[in-house]
Amino acid sequence: MQTKGLKLTDVLTTVVVAIVFGIVYKVWGPLYYAVKPLGLHLDQLIYGMWFIAATVAYLLIRKPGVALLAEVAAASGEFLVGSEWGLEVLFYGFVQGLLAELVFAAFRYKRFDVAVVSLAAVGSTIASLVLDFYKGYIDQLAWWNLTLFIGARFVGAIIIAGVFAYSLVKALEATGVTQLLRPTTKEDYDSLDK
C-alpha cells in the first residue's frame, strides 16, 4: 500500500514526536546557559541534544524526508513555545536537519545502526558550526578555545544525538509501539496463506 512520499500517519507521527523534543529543546536553552559559566565550553557537550529529533524520528519511521521534517518541526515547536533565540532556531533546525538527512540519503536509507545515526549527528554538528561561523565569529576565538569548543560539540553530539538516540529508540522498540510505524513486507502478506 506504499504511496509516493510520506503518508499522513508518517508526517503526523514525526511532527508529534518532534514537538515533544521541541519542548526538550526549549528547556535545554536555560540549561545550556546555566552550565556555560561553569567552565570553558562545557556547555558544548550538551549542545547535541538539539540534533536528537532528526535521528530519533529517522530511526522510528525509517523513511526519506523524516529527519529533515523532524528537525524543522522540533525547531518550530521550540520557537512556538517561546525560545529565547527566536527565529534563529528555524534556520538552525533547517540546516541541521538537512545535513542529517543527507547522511541518511548517502546510505540510501538502508541503514539504521548506531554508526549511521552518529554520522548524522556529526552532520548536524557541522551544520551548526557553519552557521555559528557566520553568526558567532567563532573563528575569532583563540585557537585553543576554538578547538575545545568544536571538539566538545562533536563529542556531545555523538553521545546524545547518536548513541543515546539509538538506545532510546531501542528501548521504545521493546515496548512494541514501533510496530505501528514500520511498513509491512511481502513476507507478512505471504504468511496469510500459510
Binding site: T9, V17, L60, L172
Partner: peptide, 23 residues
Amino acid sequence: MKRYAIPLLSQSIRRAQRIAVAM
C-alpha cells in the same frame, strides 16, 4: 531521561497514529 521519555514518546506515537487514522 529515558525513563521519562519512554512513556511520553510511546503515548505520543500511539496518539499520533490514532489521530491520523481519525483524520
